[in-house]
Amino acid sequence: MDVFMKGLSKAKEGVVAAAEKTKQGVAEAAGKTKEGVLYVGSKTKEGVVHGVATVAEKTKEQVTNVGGAVVTGVTAVAQKTVEGAGSIAAATGFVKKDQLGKNEEGAPQEGILEDMPVDPDNEAYEMPSEEGYQDYEPEA
């Protein structure tokens, strides 16, 4: 019985440690998101679009440190934060509304985080759909 109880105690310690790591990862992701939003706020009209992409990228980098179902929630929060940063930029006159959601080359930025393969159960990952990809044929 002692062996059984000791095993359960060790398992509990492992769960607590994993929860603490997840909590730490979420806190880091939130900190990076805040950094990115402050970065966007300090940019001029020309830099705002690039700044919004930076927020998304920093958040995406930190999301990889967070495991399990938390990833889905962090990704949703990050996307809403990026959308909010863009709205703030438009409201303050840093950028025109028609410039939001495009990178410096004018290509749409939507789907940055949505296409990231995420499995809350950590069982399997699927690649994003290939609808947006084109076949590449090298020139002879």
Rank of each mutant, 00 (worst) to 15 (best):
H50G: 05
P120H: 04
L8Q: 00
V3M: 07
G93K: 04
Q109Y: 11
A19P: 00
T81N: 02
L8I: 05
K21P: 00
K23F: 14
T72D: 08
V52W: 07
S42Y: 04
Q99I: 09
G68K: 10
D115W: 14
E130V: 02
H50L: 12
T72N: 15
G31N: 11
E104W: 10
K102H: 10
I112E: 08
A90W: 15
E104C: 00
M116P: 12
A91V: 05
D119Y: 12
M116H: 11
V55A: 09
V63Y: 08
L100M: 09
E61K: 06
A56R: 12
V95T: 12
A17D: 14
P120A: 08
D115M: 12
Y136N: 06
V55E: 00
A27G: 06
E46C: 09
K96G: 03
D2Y: 09
G31T: 12
K43Q: 06
D135Y: 15
A91I: 12
L113P: 03
A140E: 11
V48K: 01
V16M: 12
A19I: 12
P138Y: 10
K96W: 15
P138F: 09
K6A: 08
H50A: 03
D2R: 05
E35D: 03
E130S: 14
S9T: 03
V40R: 02
A91C: 14
S42W: 14
N122K: 08
A90N: 08
G73Y: 01
D2F: 13
L113I: 12
G14K: 14
K60C: 10
G41P: 00
D2W: 02
T75I: 13
M116Y: 15
G25R: 08
Q79T: 09
F94G: 10
A91P: 14
P120C: 04
T75K: 14
P120K: 07
E110F: 06
V48N: 01
D119E: 12
N103D: 11
K23L: 06
G67S: 10
N103I: 03
M1D: 03
V48H: 01
F4Q: 00
T22P: 05
G132Q: 12
T92N: 04
K58V: 15
K10W: 05
K21Y: 12
G36M: 04
G73C: 13
T59H: 02
V66K: 06
G101P: 00
A11Q: 00
G31I: 09
A89D: 04
T75E: 08
V66W: 13
K45H: 07
G86C: 08
G67R: 01
S129P: 05
T72V: 09
G101E: 00
V37H: 00
V70R: 01
Y125T: 11
E28I: 08
Y136Q: 08
A89E: 02
V49M: 14
E137V: 10
K12D: 00
K23H: 03
M1C: 00
E46S: 05
V66F: 11
K97R: 05
N65Y: 05
F94N: 06
G111Q: 00
L113V: 04
Q24K: 15
F4W: 08
D98I: 12
A11D: 00
S9R: 12
P138C: 03
I112V: 12
N103W: 13
K34S: 00
A30Q: 02
A124N: 13
E20Q: 06
T92V: 15
A30C: 09
K34R: 12
V70M: 10
Q24T: 05
A76V: 11
E105T: 13
N122R: 13
Y39S: 11
A29W: 10
V63T: 04
G25H: 15
E83S: 10
E110Y: 11
V49Y: 04
Y133H: 02
D135T: 11
A11G: 03
A76R: 05
D98P: 12
K96D: 10
V82A: 03
T44I: 05
K32L: 15
N103T: 09
E105M: 01
E46V: 15
G106V: 08
K60V: 08
T81C: 13
A19K: 03
M1H: 00
E20F: 14
Q79R: 03
A27F: 11
E114A: 11
G67C: 06
V26D: 00
D121W: 04
K23D: 00
D115R: 10
K60F: 05
A89N: 05
V82S: 06
H50Q: 02
A85L: 13
N103C: 13
T33L: 08
E126K: 08
G51R: 04
Q62N: 04
K34D: 00
T44N: 03
V52D: 01
V48S: 01
V37A: 11
G84Y: 06
V49K: 09
